[in-house]
């Protein structure tokens, strides 16, 4: 249900391509700067940045490339709503992973 003209949507595609390329380049640059110059500092802040930037890339791919931005709202909701389960899944299983690690440490399974 595009309301854009042919010319506009063509331009938009290349703009989104540029955004995705720049975001990827920023991610790589951040990872390499950390690896080369800040190797001993914790990576947790950087990881939050990576999650945010990846979510931005996912947004652009879904909304523009997969055309979801131009579909009717109920359709968008019915596609995105199931993914809320994944939020629970990620939190629950990472939590569980930490628990496994603490159990291993408790029983001296790791040297």
């Amino acid at each position: 249900m595009s309301t854009l003209t042919q010319e506009e949507s063509r331009k938009r595609v290349w703009r989104v391509c540029g955004i995705l390329a720049v975001v990827t380049a920023v991610e790589i640059a951040a990872a390499l700067i950390h690896y080369n110059y800040m190797h001993d500092s914790p990576k947790s802040f950087l990881n939050i940045l990576f999650v945010v930037l990846s979510a931005a890339k996912a947004y652009y791919i879904m909304s523009e490339f997969m055309h979801l931005k131009y579909e009717l709202k109920p359709m968008v909701i019915s596609i995105l709503a199931p993914f809320l389960f994944l939020v629970w899944g990620i939190i629950a299983f990472l939590w569980e992973g930490h628990y496994w690690l603490s159990e291993k440490e408790l029983w001296h399974i790791l040297k």
Partner: peptide
Amino acid sequence: ISYGAIRTSQP
């Protein structure tokens, strides 16, 4: 998610 769980269970 399995990857995440297994990875966080390693040092």
